[in-house]
């Protein structure tokens, strides 16, 4: 594997880890663990396949391991338990910081999909493969995550106007 190719992926891995974890040091620790694991499994890497997807997959699995080892269940998907704080009117600058804190209020499963779509612009099918879940699950988590983020940002109490047609 070409180290230039890896170097090229590092900024994206760091960005995603930072967005997922919030904390800079913890995010870089995760990226470092990802690279170490990647090198230790370099024999499993197939030349010509998608390096970015491979690295993101390793990172995802490491994170699952960490959560499991720490005895933390991944955040509950119970939609109704969501706390929705009221937000006073703020400037754009504060709004970005606000967005970050709102993002923390999403369950892990929703946040990761939202970020893979928004930051990485991955296709739904690629995300499904990466996370090892059906594409329908990707779609429903994306939909719930976006709506929850919107509600948190709007400081609204209920998702009254969410109309699900199916």
């Amino acid at each position: 594997m070409d180290s230039r190719a890896i170097l090229a992926e590092l900024p994206r891995l760091r960005r995603y880890a930072r967005a997922m974890l919030g904390d800079r040091a913890a995010a870089d620790d995760l990226v470092q663990d990802t690279l170490e694991r990647a090198w230790s499994r370099i024999s499993q890497w197939r030349q010509g396949s998608d390096l970015r997807a491979w690295l993101f997959g390793i990172m995802h699995n490491l994170r699952i391991d960490q959560l499991r080892r720490a005895g933390l269940a991944t955040t509950s998907l119970d939609e109704d338990a969501a706390e929705v704080p009221l937000r006073p009117t703020q400037t754009d600058r504060l709004e970005l910081m606000d967005l970050e804190s709102a993002l923390r209020q999403l369950p892990d499963e929703q946040r990761e999909i939202l970020l893979l779509v928004a930051l990485e612009e991955m296709s739904y099918a690629d995300i499904a493969t990466l996370l090892g879940i059906p594409i329908g699950t990707v779609m429903s988590r994306l939909s719930r995550g976006r709506e929850r983020l919107r509600v948190v940002m709007d400081g609204r109490q209920q998702t009254a106007n969410l109309r699900v047609v199916r």
């Binding site: 180290s3 590092l10 900024p11 990226v31 170490e36």
Partner: peptide
Amino acid sequence: QKQALKALFQPVLDEPLPDRLQTLSV
């Protein structure tokens, strides 16, 4: 929302890589 998320984390792409990560590209 999507645009705002991108804008929020865009700066990370331009940060210099920490040595410990750079080292591991080899």
